[in-house]
Write a protein that binds this DNA or RNA. Sequence first.
RNA 1: GCGGGUAUAGCUCAGUUGGCUAGAGCGCAGCUCUGAUAAAGCUGAGGUCCUUGGUUCGAAUCCAAGUACCCGCACCA
Length: 1172
Amino acid sequence: MPFEKVESSPDFPAMERHVLKFWAEDGTFEKRKALNAGKPKWSFLDGPITANNPMGVHHAWGRTYKDAYNRYFAMTGRELRYQNGFDCQGLWVEVEVEKELQLKSKRDIENLVPGNVEASIDKFVQACKDRVNTFARVQTDQSIRLGMWMDWDKTDEDWAKSPDDRKSYFTMAERNNFAIWSFLKKCFAKKLIYRGYDVMPWCGRCGVGISEQEMKEGYKLVEHRACFVKLPLLDKPGENLLVWTTTPWTLTSNVGAAINPKLAYLKVKLKNEVYYLAKGVFKQDRMASSSGDDEQPEAQAPGKKSKREWLDGVPNLNTIEQMFKSKAGKGESYEIVGEVKGEEMLGWRYAGPFDDLPAQQSEYGFPEEVAKIVKQNGWCPAVTGAAAHRVVSGGDDVSESEGTGIVHTAPGCGGIDFAWGKANGLPPVAPIGDDGCFHKGFGSLESKNAADPATADVVFEELKKKDRLFGIERYVHRYPHCWRCKTELLYRLVDEWFIGMGTWECGVRSAECGVEDKKEEYSFRREIAKVVEKVTFLPESLNGRARELDWLKNMGDWMISKKRYWGLALPIWVDEKDPTDFEVIGSREELKERAVEGWQEFDGHTPHRPWVDKIVLKNPRTGNRMFRIPDVGNPWLDAGIVAYSTLPADWRPADFITESFPGQFRNWFYALLALSTMMSDGEVPPFKTLLGFATCKDQFGHDMHKSAGNSIEFNKAADEGGEIKDPKGATIPFNAIGADVMRWLYCRQNPASNLLFGPKPADEVRAKFHLKLWNCYSFFVNYAIADGFDPTAEQVPVKERPDIDRWILSDLQGLIRTARESFESFDVMRFALVAEEFVDSKLSNWYVRRNRDRFWSRNAELDAAGLKDKLAAYQTMHAVLTTLCRLIAPCVPFLAEVLWKNLRCTADPESVHLVDYPSVDESLIDQQLSDDTEALLNLVTQGGAARNAAKQKVRQPLAELRVFSDAEPVKRALARFAETLQDELNIKRVIASAEPILTAAVKLNMKTAGAKIGAKRKDVDAALKAITAEELAKQFRTGPVDLGGVVLDSADLSVEYVAPDGWAGVADRGTQVAIDARITPELRAEGLSRDVIRFVQENRKKARLELSDKIVLHVATTSNELSDVIDTHKDAIMAAVQAVELVAGQFELASVFGAIKLEVGELTIGIRKADG
RNA sequence: GCGGGUAUAGCUCAGUUGGCUAGAGCGCAGCUCUGAUAAAGCUGAGGUCCUUGGUUCGAAUCCAAGUACCCGCACCA
């Protein structure tokens, strides 16, 4: 017996676990690898998954693509690497470990081993490594469960190996870290590495600078308290500058006040004091969206009143004028006493708001380290902050769109402030340390956290005491937050390390915009852009290349340092006495060669902190010792190098990568491109094709959040089941979805759109695809078993098989072609949708349904031709199912395997994944047959619609169906498949009509025409009656038509097709189908007899009779007509229900009874199983 | 603010180079079939194809302006 019986309601997750066991025991994956060894390479590069937590279902989307394309290319005979990657290093792991160990700050980390910083860091780094190993293993198991075929590390032995020796790649591996060193060395050789002192966003909790890339992920709309502050002018008693800030804590570090020399400034007098502020801001509606640039201050731009983003519950902003009015008090007012040009104000000295602080008394700025660097770089003369206060020019960066037009400038607290400071010789006062708290030297603010609202209160109190506070308001704006821990960022003067990206202008677009190529000047940015031109971004609709170029054009220099612990040790060693003298080491060997101290201790450790910090070099220029900077690297370096560190040279560039695209054009895609560009000197891109895909949302379209209860863990989706919350918070439980249902959901999704994941879409997809296919399969197998079908029996030549067999084989070739084209163009969605259509409309709803009697016919009752026909049906269906298995195997490897294992012949490979992907067999394509059958299927649908129009159920036979059509396939289908059509629609005759059957009737579309017609309705109706539909249509071709004095266009009319009396019909695209709805007494009788049969069958089922059981049928009816019908159709009824005897009444002998009310009267039946 | 995308049924989305009566799935309503049967099928209701203007014999489709949402970039004193 070649086939095993098939369950009608399968437990897919259980089956999948079974298949996994088989693959493991059989070594199927290894067999596939062996099969393809030495064949042409197909190089896939896995984007590393962060090994920091268990997988969620959103990870499974990308991993399904990865596996499906890998499997397709394996089945088409390519050699693959099958290497999965884990992203290991970086702050996200540190944050989780901090939570685990309940650490709150960097100080806690450095005190893990009390009093021993080095041992503490070692312990912390080890904990990070352990966490990565733990979750890499969890994710490995989960990926295996998803059906992903990769070279996995499975055993304890595998996991005991160093990351360098495992099968998956790990970004924490030495290979990876040292590869980045060599990259940085190349950058250094091109003089791109530099140390930057700049004001950068900083996370006080994590104690790290936030790079441009990271900052973009953390903007949030928040409320702050902004304040207006008086800055008294030293040489103009009673006069003040008025400045505004949203970050009161920075006032402590005020050094300058910036104006725009081109603007006009008002002198506003209020209660004997004069305030300066920009003219344009005084009466400005501050709730209007900042409308770029002024120019036409009064001119009302109509319809352009966009309101600025605001939070509910925060009062609208007052105009500055209003503030002056209300401060003036009852009956009083302000007075405008003059106007000055901005440039006249330059150089005015003023008293700062916090000049009493020690920090303001330090020459070259504060604190000392900063002052030192400022002095060394000559950024300002030897002045203190307090002594430096004056009005400087901010140029056009000072605008009238916000604030007062005079900008409080704290070069230690803001990016542009720092630049203005350097330009004007103002010393930077940097108030906060790496924990976000005030340094010593800031009086009552010392050690207060700058982000804490209570700190602002202290500032306001101080200002009030000094009478410097003009006003406080609640202000809403978008402000950056730490993308990891959500803490508000602070701008802080830091020294970080950067890769200079060069300018965009020098040459990249020279061809386009005629910019002269300054060939001497190297631009990293430009080099990357050239490489970007060499790769393909999919899906096309996302314009990936344009996005990447846009980022390249606009990005700043790349900040690569992080003041943290767990990560790439930046291989930068600095002279102990000269912070500007540094070197970059490019390899472990070079390090060993150059080390003068610490090698012994370092040797045997990975290049991580704290061990690598022990290495000391000697500066060949000065003879001084050089120490490694304590910084670790930006983790995108880790992921960006993998095209080099993990792909061997003969596998480069990768043919394909795929990742979720939001954010990645500036993260992974960018890093890959950047590092490959440098490593290959602009020659080799990291990949040829990139497939991006969107974001996974819940089934209601909302973002998945653990806290909202709508995210789904992978294990729950795969095996365990669980529950989710809907947007209203109601709990929805769900059963295990299983891997293949998920995988199909992902495969059929448009990658450019967000995917809605959840039990509901899963159920839909299962019902639509998996269960339909399963039904076809189980139908086939269960009959094949009963009939003893032998798939290895000699094939009935395809030419000798009936149309329906040759049709489905022909259409199957079309599906194969689509499948291959789709996979080759990385468009698996196209294949999936066509495959669904094939299974549903073609296989299940037509082939299987139309062929049921071929399968259930009895061998004993068949002649030679009958047996051959039956064999043809089995062979056709077997071919279709086995081919389908292979076609869908890359997408749903489990389902395909289950089907294959039962359907395959003994000579076939034991796994579908060891078989070649199907190729189109041209000899099986019969285009005309495919077209004709499609026409037939349309006729069936239309015939059904006509029946509906006639209000006649299919059980009632009807006399005639007429079809009129110009289309050749329809005409041929009518000739060829008349019998099928008769049977399908329960019609006695099908006739092809040479002339239209239906008459077009034109009706008014009162929705649109009503208003035009108004009172002339009668005239229009008359005009309509007087003209034929054909004539009307002709007139409409040249424009609107005058009907009864009303000019109508074609949209005002609608056409309905009307069948002749006694008929019902429908029309669709040039094909008219009409059905004779008149029921003759004979037809009526036949219909009634079918009612009787149906009712008996229902009762047979109730009586649980076997298919082969014969019965004795008892009948009684109140209707003479029905009684006659039963008499006339006695033979047909008895044959259909397998009755050996028909008895009137005598129900006492029957075992099952039923009674039903038909339209003609009541029918009562009884059934008794016949003896023998 | 700049650039890109999207807008089609209650929901999720198709809709080719402009072309005849705008489609599918789900949901809803009704019905059918009863030897795939805890399956299957059919039909229906439901559309201002975002708005306005233009091109055209003809626009969901092309053009312009506007509106809303999404994405990217910039700014955020």
